[in-house]
Amino acid sequence: MRNRFFAHARGLAAAALVALAMLAAAAQRPLSAQELQPLVIVTDEGRHDFQVELAATPEERARGLMFRRSMPQDQGMLFDFQRVQPLAMWMRNTYISLDMLFIDADGTIVRIAQNTEPLSERTIPSGQPVLSVLELNGGVTSRLGIEPGDRVEHPLFAE
């Protein structure tokens, strides 16, 4: 009986490892052109064009940019939380530093967490209720002069 229990437990552990490896492999895939959507950030200095992957389902939002080792400078991930609410993000299993832009329903950036720490489980709060979070490579907002109060143009936001 005991040997059968350990064999079953080993089988479950092996299946879990295979599933985890498949999730990690899927998460490392580059963003394909058909998955990307145009997004523009409008600042006092001008317009900055990006291509973003939309994370709209609970599964997509939970996975986010986990396990990815790089991302092109003009790409990012836009998290659609479907309703305005206080949010908190983290960097669990995320290997690249990110700038997190917390955005209200009309597309106004209300807070930016710059150069987040890879692999950290520290929560990063929105500071106020928001609809969405845009993740870009760490340092992009500083390099382009993107600040709270700037606007994001994307179909997710009311005009």
Rank of each mutant, 00 (worst) to 15 (best):
W90T: 00
A13K: 11
T94I: 02
Q85I: 10
A14P: 03
T123M: 12
Q75F: 08
R69K: 11
I96C: 06
L39H: 04
A105P: 09
R29D: 07
L31I: 10
L101A: 08
D99R: 06
D106N: 11
R4W: 07
P129C: 15
S97H: 03
L156M: 06
E117T: 13
H8R: 11
I146K: 04
W90V: 01
A105N: 12
F67P: 04
A13H: 12
M89W: 01
L31G: 01
N137P: 05
L136C: 13
L144F: 04
A7M: 07
F157D: 03
L39Q: 05
R151N: 14
V42A: 12
P30M: 09
E121C: 06
M100L: 12
D74H: 15
A158N: 10
R2W: 13
N93H: 15
R10Y: 14
A56Q: 06
T116G: 00
V140A: 05
F81E: 11
G107H: 02
F5P: 00
E135L: 03
A13T: 09
V152T: 10
A25W: 05
A105L: 04
A25D: 04
A105W: 12
S126N: 12
V140I: 15
R4Y: 14
A16Y: 12
R47W: 10
R4M: 13
N93V: 10
N137V: 05
A56L: 01
E159R: 11
Q82N: 10
I112Y: 08
G64C: 01
V140T: 13
S97N: 03
R68C: 09
A113G: 04
G46W: 14
Q28V: 07
D44P: 03
R29M: 11
P38M: 00
A33M: 08
M22Y: 00
Q85F: 09
T116E: 01
H48L: 04
E53W: 08
T116W: 01
M77F: 03
R68V: 09
L65F: 03
E153H: 12
L134D: 06
D106E: 13
S142Y: 06
L31K: 05
R111W: 08
E60D: 11
Q75W: 09
G11K: 15
L54S: 02
T116D: 00
L12W: 15
M22V: 14
E117Q: 12
D49G: 03
T94S: 02
A88C: 12
Y95T: 01
I41H: 04
T94D: 00
Q51R: 11
L144M: 08
P118M: 05
R47E: 15
A26C: 08
G145K: 08
V52A: 02
A33V: 07
Q73H: 13
L134C: 06
H154L: 07
F102W: 13
E147S: 10
M77C: 05
V110W: 09
N3V: 10
P72K: 04
H8G: 08
Q75N: 11
V110I: 10
E35K: 03
G149H: 03
Q128K: 13
V140S: 09
